[in-house]
């Protein structure tokens, strides 16, 4: 665990150094967050994929999970999916178009703006969303960081 912490710290430092060195050119970091009260402390990429791409609708601990897409901030959304599954938005949309007919699998819940997302996160314990790191409040808990 200490190894992991140190490792992540080192990464963070490295990233920070990188950010400083190229200030303004690098986009803001995206993090995946939950409600502060959520039992889930941390998630891995695979778990995020399972939830956001509709395989599971519950966290690994069995509690319901509600993944949230931001509708109006396409840049954030595109950045997130690129980072998560390596696909452009069009492909992600096409994936969902194919699955809508089955009705069994549901895509993430849609919120309009980042503020709406933040508000939902603060109110809904099952919420799971991606936001810029700068938007993180103390009512939220970061469970995953994209490096």
């Amino acid at each position: 665990m200490t190894f992991y912490k140190r490792y992540s710290l080192t990464l963070t430092i490295l990233m920070a150094l990188n950010s400083f060195s190229c200030l303004g050119a690098t986009p803001e970091k995206i993090v995946v967050v939950t409600n502060q009260k959520n039992d889930v402390q941390v998630m891995d990429k695979k778990g995020l994929i399972d939830l956001f791409m509709g395989k599971y609708s519950a966290f690994p601990n069995g509690k319901q999970a509600t993944p949230i897409d931001v509708e109006l901030n396409a840049e954030l959304k595109a950045q997130f999916y690129e980072a998560l599954v390596g696909l452009p938005l069009a492909r992600v949309n096409a994936y969902w178009s194919r699955l809508k007919f089955s009705g069994r699998v549901k895509p993430p819940v849609i919120e309009q703006t980042i503020n709406d997302v933040c508000q939902r996160l603060e109110e809904d314990e099952s919420a799971l969303a991606y936001i810029y790191e700068s938007n993180v409040t103390n009512k939220m808990k970061v469970v995953y960081r994209f490096d």
Binding site: M53, G54, K55, R98, L99, S102, V105
Partner: peptide
Amino acid sequence: ATASIAAFLEDEDL
């Protein structure tokens, strides 16, 4: 692609 998604989602219809 269909088979891949089906396997991922464990979706029998697909």
